[in-house]
Computed example of a mutant assay.
Amino acid sequence: MKIITSISIFIVVFILDQFIKYAFVYFGWGYEGSCLSFQLAYNYGVAFSMFSFLKEYLKYIQLFLVVGGLIYLYFNKEVLKEYALPISLLFAGGLSNILDRFTYGAVVDYIYWHCGFEFAIFNLADMIINLAVAIIIYKQIFTKKDQKN
C-alpha cells in the first residue's frame, strides 16, 4: 500500500507542477502583488541561478544524479521503505525541473517574493524538493532520538 501511495503522490505533484509551468509559458498566467508576484522566468542554472554557465549540460548532470539515486535505492531498499514519502516528493520535483530543461531549455520559475526583501524566483517543484529535504532531516533527528531512548 505504501508504494501505491508514494507513486500516486509522485504522479500528482509531477503533473500539477508541469501543468502550472505550461500555463505560465503558453497561457500567459501572471499576477503582480505587493508582496508576492507570479511571473514567468527561466532559470538556466540551479538554485539562485548558480552554475548557469553549465546550462546545456545541467540536464544531463541532474539526470545522471537521479539515476545514481535510483541505483542507490535499488540496493538499499530499507531506505526506500523508511523514506518513501520524501523520496517520492524529491523525485517528483527534481524530475519535473529536469523535464523543463529538456522541454524549455531552462527551469520554468514563477513565484517571486518581494516584500521587505527580494528573494529568488522559484516554482512549486522547488518548494516540494525543500519539503522533502525537511522531512528527511526531521526523520533523521527524531529517529536518532528514539534509538537513544
Rank of each mutant, 00 (worst) to 15 (best):
residue 131 L to W: 13
residue 32 E to P: 00
residue 125 A to H: 10
residue 125 A to W: 14
residue 101 R to H: 07
residue 82 E to I: 06
residue 56 E to C: 04
residue 85 L to T: 05
residue 95 L to C: 13
residue 9 I to C: 05
residue 135 I to K: 10
residue 36 L to Y: 06
residue 23 A to G: 12
residue 92 A to I: 09
residue 59 K to D: 02
residue 78 E to P: 09
residue 97 N to C: 07
residue 81 K to M: 00
residue 15 I to D: 09
residue 40 L to K: 11
residue 60 Y to G: 11
residue 29 W to Q: 07
residue 77 K to E: 00
residue 71 I to M: 12
residue 36 L to R: 02
residue 1 M to W: 08
residue 42 Y to R: 15
residue 113 W to L: 15
residue 43 N to H: 06
residue 54 L to F: 14
residue 143 T to H: 12
residue 134 A to Y: 11
residue 59 K to M: 00
residue 35 C to T: 13
residue 14 F to I: 02
residue 18 Q to G: 08
residue 35 C to E: 12
residue 58 L to M: 03
residue 33 G to E: 13
residue 83 Y to T: 00
residue 41 A to M: 11
residue 9 I to T: 13
residue 141 I to G: 06
residue 45 G to L: 02
residue 32 E to D: 09
residue 3 I to Q: 09
residue 16 L to D: 03
residue 17 D to W: 06
residue 85 L to Y: 14
residue 122 F to L: 11
residue 136 I to L: 10
residue 110 Y to A: 05
residue 45 G to K: 03
residue 98 I to F: 08
residue 132 A to V: 02
residue 67 V to Y: 11
residue 105 G to F: 08
residue 34 S to G: 13
residue 9 I to L: 15
residue 104 Y to D: 02
residue 118 E to D: 11
residue 132 A to H: 04
residue 73 L to S: 00
residue 148 K to H: 14
residue 102 F to I: 02
residue 97 N to D: 02
residue 74 Y to R: 15
residue 66 V to F: 06
residue 78 E to Q: 10
residue 39 Q to V: 14
residue 48 F to Y: 09
residue 41 A to T: 12
residue 142 F to I: 13
residue 40 L to G: 06
residue 144 K to H: 15
residue 58 L to C: 05
residue 109 D to W: 15
residue 66 V to T: 02
residue 38 F to G: 06
residue 76 N to M: 06
residue 128 I to D: 04
residue 10 F to S: 02
residue 109 D to V: 05
residue 96 S to F: 14
